[in-house]
Design a protein around this nucleic acid. Sequence first.
DNA 1: CCGTATATGTCACTCAGTGCCAGTATGGCA
DNA 2: TGCCATACTGGCACTGAGTGACATATACGG
Lengths: 198, 198
Amino acid sequence: MTDEGTARGGLRDRTRRTMRAELAALAVRLFTEKGYDATTVDDIAREAGVSKRSFFRYFATKEDAVFSAVETLSERVADDIRACPAGDGPWECLRRVLGRWEREIDASQRRLSDLRLIEATPALRAAFARKREEWRDQAAQALRARPGTELDPFTADLLTAAAASALDAASREWLRSGGTADRGALLDRAFSVLRPGV
Amino acid sequence: MTDEGTARGGLRDRTRRTMRAELAALAVRLFTEKGYDATTVDDIAREAGVSKRSFFRYFATKEDAVFSAVETLSERVADDIRACPAGDGPWECLRRVLGRWEREIDASQRRLSDLRLIEATPALRAAFARKREEWRDQAAQALRARPGTELDPFTADLLTAAAASALDAASREWLRSGGTADRGALLDRAFSVLRPGV
DNA sequence: CCGTATATGTCACTCAGTGCCAGTATGGCA
DNA sequence: TGCCATACTGGCACTGAGTGACATATACGG
């Protein structure tokens, strides 16, 4: 496996990890420029100097190229929830976990234009909802597995769904503000308003 | 336009409304029997005695055939919310509207197998999430347009999202119970737990 | 130098969905 | 009755996502 690329026109010869990341960045750029539907996978592949077949070796679907940066998050849910202080109730725990993610995303990755792109594209919104649903399901399981608390499936389901709603609403409000609002504060506010009667 | 069909093998010559409904019923039956992915639009069309092209004149997408019965609901949101007593807070209003829908759906249409199908099929879950999102958006607007209450976009967004979560969680619990639980009671419980500090 | 694993390209294929056009039935109107 | 507008339909060709099979090149370990 080569460590760095020769960059002969495309993205060939990178590390698999780098390749995936740069392919994703290229895809998002094209989506933002020309629109999601107007950009074919062939376009992306051609621009990257690889074949369409190769694109689908890095991403299962066209949508996945947009979510490549985020998808590692949902794999950490169980650990993050386990890491909550034992004193936390379910809702505080969810708030803590989502708050941390919020700061992470805010600091490192997600740009305003990316969110706009997702919000403006039905296919991406659907894909996003699907990711969110996977996350929610894992979160509900992890929440029930926490020692000291016994939570029935229904309540765990409900609380995680509500937490996801809080995150969504905060995200949309941030989008409406044109990226000027404080995302952490919005999330806090959402969690405060919804604070359930456990 | 003919009023009744001659039923010569397929579903031809029905009223447009009837045609759509029976086509949907046929599609759902095939999806349930053979699985969603394993059933092509051509299969459905052939079984119905029409062309694939005609199928797409009744349904924009393959998924839509499953949601044909529900989709009228989301067009009524604004009216239903407007019909809430003026004394209702936003949350009570949402609870009332969703409670009514719940009873309607429960009484008339949605079967356990249908929900199982949706829950088991990623593409259908995504499509369902999309419908839900459209509904939520309209509900948030309608809620803000209610006279007597001034609701900022963020809160309206948050409350409708939470209400949708309540409905989802109740629906999933009902599914988990194998269809034996009282859906109305579940929805009530969900709304009680989440009762937000408006 | 050789065998193996990995990454890639090419080709052919399925299937969802669309645009276009031509055929057919119906219902109103002169 | 004959004509015309308005649906509704099938057929066909096409785009584009996604997959499977097969061949090839390149690196690495022995």
